[in-house]
Design a protein around this nucleic acid. Structure first.
Lengths: 284, 284
DNA sequence: TTGGTCTTTCCATATTATGGTAATTAGGTT
DNA sequence: AACCTAATTACCATAATATGGAAAGACCAA
């Protein structure tokens, strides 16, 4: 398992408001700042970062920075080397992060996603099921960006929406599909205009074919091919999809994508079986 | 790598003040609360937890809880399933925690520590070097608790103090030992009353013997045997020590502990070499 | 539908986080 | 060693802002 990279924007203004900077929840300013501090330290974890460096980067006063650092320190979220005065991430943060162990699929499948990205040239997604949603864990953009793409890492959509979400849904038992569709009924309208029965047909088509296919019926106008990956005859660990713009996905290309997916995951059962054990009972 | 456990105290009053509840940094109340919320969610990550459940557990008002949840949500530290209204840990927290990758030694050596605990019946420690300190990553209490034991997980002591810290120090180069001793000089008085030259002799004895030995010279009155573990002829990844009360560690027992340590780690070079690569350049 | 529970918003108030200043400590230079 | 400079930490009056009550809005189950 390789070290995952931190993808955070870490600029001057990041002390207030997060990456989805648009909506900053009123109140709790200090929590935002604390998170900014945390990110700052995370970015320099291996080498360590001093209080003043953080002041500069985050544009906070020394006093505030110091106070926040003390709080995080007292909770063992951070650690400080008293001699170099450099701050590092603490054991507590590691444990907290480790509790979100589900996301380890990210690293386990990283190499496959990179392969797919390279071989297809298209945008590649990784999803897991989380409740009645599919949760995007990773997105590697293709050679040409897909316009109007809303699926960010960490974002959710109801299961059944999009190739990834459909692959995950189709891999569930009928009982579960039923349950999911019921609880999501009112939401599908945001994505397409079809009946629940129609989604059932998609599920069945997906099962028969072994791949999910999004033929551009989504309002976003993206076309994609998806596959559920996981140990044989078990519920899937995740779903991977390859997506391009509406216009680009010809029938030939679709078949090529299916081939790529098949090849990439066909001998992964054993390693996924192992992984499955850890992940089951997780978010889902 | 098994899922690490969260050891957090998660009681009513944990919303204010952390585990080292004694010193609550004045100001930044909301940060403490946010961390409490985070812990609350972490504890129920797999199943998810609702806003009201958190209210009860943390003894916060619905409004406050909701606001904090929104902040953490907006930073992707948390995730919510909009249908079940249950909160889970988010991708961002996972990435943040993954940045503290150093601590993965915890899991890599976990089974060995458990073995040692079982075979020795004594208290077992895991340390890594962090700057001029030894940082305790894990402590598994023995059959009988050691009285007055101050070494908590996440706590630091100057390198050279205690069996673990001495093992780590002795494994460093002479140049580094020199540097560490210089920067820590004024602090050793808190632990024992010996000269720097005496510590140098301990270092040399440790190197010759292959084990560090704390013969109760510490003010805490604990005796312990330690060993540095890591790939051959490289700087060590960590140190492991077995400790008991002052009175219990007879010469025979000491030799037994050395045997246990030797056996436990003697064929680990290859796996540690691999680990070493990831960890180097980390905290140290 | 209705009733009840859980979630979310709003707002005046008092709590409490803030940043200026100052004291202390550390690091580097002559 | 003794200086100087820079960084870190403590203090405190003030203003900003997080707080919790109450009420509105969702949601679910009869």
């Amino acid at each position: 398992m390789e070290r995952p990279s931190i993808n955070l924007n870490f600029s001057k203004e990041s002390a207030r408001g997060g990456q989805t900077a648009a909506k900053t929840i009123k109140g709790s300013q200090s929590v935002y700042r604390a998170i900014a501090v945390l990110r700052g330290v995370a970015r320099h974890h291996h080498t360590g970062i001093t209080s003043t460096e953080l002041c500069d980067k985050l544009d906070l006063t020394p006093a505030t920075t110091h106070r926040l650092l003390q709080v995080l320190l007292s909770e063992n979220i951070l650690t400080v080397d008293p001699y170099s005065k450099k701050y590092h991430l603490g054991l507590e943060l590691y444990l907290l992060g480790s509790a979100a162990h589900d996301f380890a699929v990210r690293e386990h499948l990283a190499v496959h996603l990179d392969n797919l990205r390279r071989l297809s040239g298209a945008t590649v997604f990784l999803f897991v099921r989380s409740g009645a949603d599919s949760l995007c864990l990773r997105r590697i953009d293709g050679d040409s960006a897909i316009v109007g793409l809303t699926i960010a890492e960490g974002s959710r959509r109801p299961l059944g929406v999009g190739a990834g979400g459909l692959a995950l849904l189709a891999a569930e038992s009928n009982r579960m599909v039923e349950k999911v569709l019921r609880s999501n009924t009112s939401l599908y309208g945001n994505y397409f205009d079809v009946s629940i029965e129609e989604i059932w047909r998609w599920v069945e088509a997906t099962r028969k074919r072994g791949f999910s296919f999004n033929d551009g019926r989504l309002k976003t106008g993206v076309r994609a091919v998806g596959i559920a990956v996981g140990p044989p005859s078990e519920r899937p660990v995740a779903a991977v999809s390859i997506a391009t713009d509406d216009t680009r996905l010809t029938e030939a290309l679709r078949i090529e994508f299916e081939q790529l997916l098949r090849v990439q995951f066909e001998n992964q059962e054993k390693s996924l079986l192992n992984l499955d054990e850890k992940l089951f009972g997780g978010l889902r």
